[in-house]
């Protein structure tokens, strides 16, 4: 065998070895992922210590730190949606049984439930209980969507909206998420998207409208020139706090900001003139659809508009 032939054979062997090694590596990774999946603690991944740590790690380039953390939170929401989609698929096969399992799974993801000892803690316990009740209520609605009386919807219990838009964000995940958005907006106080988009994630995915309001208030303080924050606060006030006057006031503020879409002021007027609850909900959801950039949320809102309109 000539040296040239030996060289070719050794090259081919090396390439074959690389391919076999790569296949083995991917295979082992797949096995490892399957082993890791039940122990994944996505909620914990959201936690960041304090704004000072990213500030130091980014060598005082706070804007970039804020961007990267924001992208991390988006990834989290994506992962979360993925898990949600998997569950939705399984729900089709075994609907009733899986509703219970789905909730149990999301609790398992975040580990031990928290215990509160102070006065504020009691409020949180109450909120947690309320959220749990909401989840249960949504499950019931999912099973019997025709049972909803669309003509007499109370905005305090717009479970249909929460059911269609919400995921199953646990308290711990919601708490971490709020902290993360807070850190992001500390690092870059003028970064608008985390204020309103973060508020929407907290509200629609976790029912955490109080934290969402805090985030929006902070956004309004730092970016008084933007219409998004009062607009979304108006949404929360109307759909989660049943505060029509507050919602109208927020929408009026939003409509006066530079760059506010025309429908914002129309919406404020519509609510003020006292249109029917369903029409009002449709109007608001339409405007929400217009301004929502998250495609998954957009699809859900569209579905909701269709559901309302068909009634």
């Amino acid at each position: 065998m000539s040296s040239k032939q030996k060289k070719i054979i050794s090259t081919i062997s090396a390439i074959a070895g690389l391919i076999v090694g790569l296949i083995l590596l991917v295979g082992i990774q797949g096995k490892m992922q399957a082993l890791q999946a039940p122990h994944l603690n996505l909620g914990e991944l959201l936690w960041v210590p304090d704004w000072k740590i990213p500030h130091v790690l980014a060598l005082a380039d706070d804007n970039t730190a804020a961007d990267l953390l924001w992208i991390r939170s988006i990834f989290y929401v994506g992962e979360y949606h993925d898990h949600g989609s998997e569950h939705d698929h399984q729900e089709d096969q075994n609907e009733h049984e899986h509703h219970h399992m789905d909730y149990t799974y999301s609790r398992d993801k975040v580990g031990e439930p928290e215990h509160h000892h102070n006065h504020e803690g009691h409020h949180e316990d109450h909120d947690n209980h309320h959220i749990q009740k909401l989840y249960k209520h949504e499950i019931e609605i999912k099973e019997t969507p025709d049972s909803i009386d669309f003509k007499n919807i109370d905005f305090r219990n717009l479970s249909l909206i929460r059911n269609t838009l919400a995921g199953h964000l646990t308290d711990n995940e919601a708490k971490h998420m709020y902290h993360l958005f807070n850190v992001i907006t500390e690092l870059d106080t003028m970064f608008v998207t985390p204020y309103y988009q973060g508020a929407m994630y907290l509200t629609l995915m976790g029912g955490r409208y109080k934290e969402a309001n805090l985030l929006l208030d902070k956004g309004m303080k730092h970016r008084p020139d933007r219409w998004e924050m009062p607009f979304y606060r108006g949404f929360i006030r109307l759909f989660y706090m049943n505060d029509k006057n507050g919602a109208v006031s927020d929408l009026r503020i939003a409509s006066m900001k530079k760059g506010a879409p025309g429908f914002v002021s129309q919406l404020a007027t519509s609510i003020q003139v006292g249109m029917g609850q369903v029409e009002m909900a449709i109007e608001f959801l339409k405007s929400l659809y217009e301004v929502t950039e998250d495609q998954e949320m957009k699809a859900k809102i569209k579905k909701l508009i269709k559901m309302y309109s068909s009634k």
Partner: peptide, 20 residues
């Protein structure tokens, strides 16, 4: 690529990361 996932203000993210 990252800015495409940002939901909002992609040009801000490109400028931030790019300048850094």
């Amino acid at each position: 690529v990252i800015s495409a996932w940002s939901v909002g203000e992609p040009e801000k993210i490109i400028a931030d990361i790019g300048l850094t």
